[in-house]
Simulated assay, not measured.
Amino acid sequence: MIKVGVIIGSTRPGRNGAAVARWVHDLAVKRGDAEYELVDLEDYALPHLDEPLPAAAGQYEHAHTRRWSQAVAALDAFVFVTPEYNRSTSGALKTAIDFLYAEWANKAAGFVGYGVDGGARAIEHLRQILATASVAGVAPQVTLSIRDDFENFSDFRPAARHEDSVRLMLDDVVSWAQALRTVRV
Rank of each mutant, 00 (worst) to 15 (best):
D50A: 07
G5F: 03
A71V: 10
K3G: 00
R67P: 00
A63S: 12
A28D: 08
K30W: 01
F111Q: 04
A57N: 07
R167F: 06
T182I: 09
I8Y: 08
S134W: 11
T65K: 09
G17D: 10
V79K: 00
A34T: 02
A177Q: 07
A63K: 05
T143C: 14
D117N: 08
V79A: 02
A105Q: 13
R67A: 13
S165P: 05
N106F: 15
A74G: 04
A160P: 14
Y60D: 00
E37F: 06
E35T: 11
W68M: 13
H125K: 03
E84S: 01
R167Q: 12
L126A: 07
Q70K: 12
H48R: 05
F156D: 06
L168S: 12
T89H: 11
V79P: 04
F80A: 06
L126C: 08
N106A: 13
M169R: 10
N16V: 03
A109E: 05
E84M: 03
A105M: 08
R181F: 03
E37W: 10
G58Y: 05
L53H: 12
A136D: 02
R66C: 00
V112K: 02
E35G: 13
D164N: 07
E84K: 03
G58C: 14
L75M: 15
D76G: 09
L46P: 02
M169P: 14
L41G: 04
P52M: 00
V4Q: 01
R121M: 15
K107I: 08
R184S: 11
D164V: 06
S154M: 00
T11L: 06
